[in-house]
Design a protein around this nucleic acid. Structure first.
Lengths: 258, 258
DNA sequence: TATTTTTTGAATATTTTTGAATATATGTTG
DNA sequence: CAACATATATTCAAAAATATTCAAAAAATA
């Protein structure tokens, strides 16, 4: 079998099952362990997947811990809490809404839970999310935000922010790398900071999705105070002190059961 | 057996089975290994297939599908003339260029032939093309044009056109549904008409890709006179009278050998 | 027949695959 | 939480598969 065929098979399994192990690959492609690993390396280099300890996962479903820099040794895991939060968030969408969907992993996970019985418009700045919406939903009008595209398929540069400025959202579903009472919503890159800030400023209702790991964490750049958010959705593993800290700032706290 | 017959046989097997090995070719055409390889080299040069280690695959099969599960059978059959024109067009890209790539099928086909040894910026309004560039090329900066996304993943509405208006391209690679001396470049929908017109107005050098079928045809809406184009790339099956008709309007005519 | 083009097979070079040795990470147990 | 056991990753060199080169042979053409 050709290299290209093997790689395609891996991608197929990955996007169907959401995960693949190294031993599955050896069986699937009838190759030795070393070749299986090398194939994963090739695909990782292309940005088609993220390697984990024991196999690989789709890029979209992985969001590494904000506390540690990402190296190939950090093993990203499937995060049920991310999924639970995304599902809960999707419940807030109403008929006719004009909403913004974050390009972070929580936004991607939301695409599995969006309502298919009402019509609404989703504004997205990720071609991965756009493609998923295009293929999966007929009831959603998709508005794409352009700009210089990052290697991960997202647009968060000033061009994209400028485009956001021309829109008023009913609701925005956003996230960040961290959230505290002191530092508010924070994120790694300045571009993202600027972009998300613009989104928030353009939205009537601001809904933040923050898995427990992100509460109490402060990333490099602050986007806005926590008080700007109307609703913060977190999960049942969140520390009570963190929850209380944010609640005092103003946002309504919603707990998604894992 | 003639060379052409052998090549055709290879293409036939390829489009039927989606793959062919070198040893299959030696049997199929009753030739030695060296000849089998040379035939593959010839076809690869024409852009009719992609050589792999051990054989070859159709160009489209080596694509990275955004969604899994496609086989080469699901992909539209590549017309050799479209492919030849796309390949020829890609030769016009120089280092540092800021180019627009049409969202039509010729633009998509170009993504198989773009130079990978020089850096340049590609502006695209199709998430399918954007995704392919993202995965396949490291040397290309991709600028995405946003707007209300059509069901096919393209953005050609007024929002997209407005975005184009803010750009000046070194070159644009465009097409249309038809091209005549009388009616110029024509296209089906008004949105597309407006969009492509804007692209042309924003480009220093205008390169049109028009397979022989499109010469002499007039679609509903005219975009601009044929004289606006600097170069028209067509294929060797184009009728001489059509070629002459366009040449008289001004554009340099380039014939891509099928 | 002379000349050119095409085909071929063998020698050589390159790429790909593999397994074993070593290193690192994760899970478990006291 | 340390120390061990297990699972997985990395490295690397040998082996296998495939590609390239090239000159001779065959075929086609003049």
């Amino acid at each position: 079998m050709f290299l290209e065929e093997r790689l395609q098979k891996i991608i197929d399994v990955l996007s169907e099952k959401g995960r693949i192990t190294t031993s599955e690959i050896t069986e699937l492609n009838k190759v030795g362990y070393s070749s299986a690993v090398r194939d994963l390396q090739i695909l990782e280099k292309k940005g088609m997947l993220i390697r984990t300890h024991g196999g690989a996962m789709p890029v979209q479903s992985v969001d590494w811990k904000p506390t540690a820099g990402y190296t190939h040794r950090d093993m990203p895991e499937i995060k049920p809490n991310y999924n639970a939060i995304s599902k809960k968030a999707a419940e807030y969408i109403s008929s006719g809404d004009y909403i913004y969907l974050t390009c972070a992993s929580t936004g991607y996970l939301m695409t599995d839970h969006l309502p298919s019985d009402i019509e609404f418009t989703a504004v997205v700045n990720s071609i991965i999310i756009a493609e998923k919406l295009r293929v999966k939903y007929d009831n959603i009008s998709v508005r794409l935000i352009g700009g210089m595209m990052r290697k991960n398929g997202n647009c968060v540069d000033p061009i994209a922010a400028e485009e956001i400025r021309k829109i008023r959202f009913d609701k925005c579903f956003i996230t960040g790398a961290g959230l505290t009472a002191d530092f508010g919503i924070s994120i790694q890159t300045p571009d993202s900071m600027n972009f998300v800030r613009t989104v928030i400023q353009s939205s009537r209702q601001k809904i933040g999705m923050f898995p427990c790991e992100k509460l109490g964490y402060e990333a490099a750049n602050t986007i806005c105070p926590a008080s700007e958010l109307d609703i913060v959705i977190t999960d049942s593993s969140a520390a009570p002190e963190h929850i209380e800290e944010i609640r005092k700032c103003g946002p309504e706290i919603v707990i998604a059961e894992i």
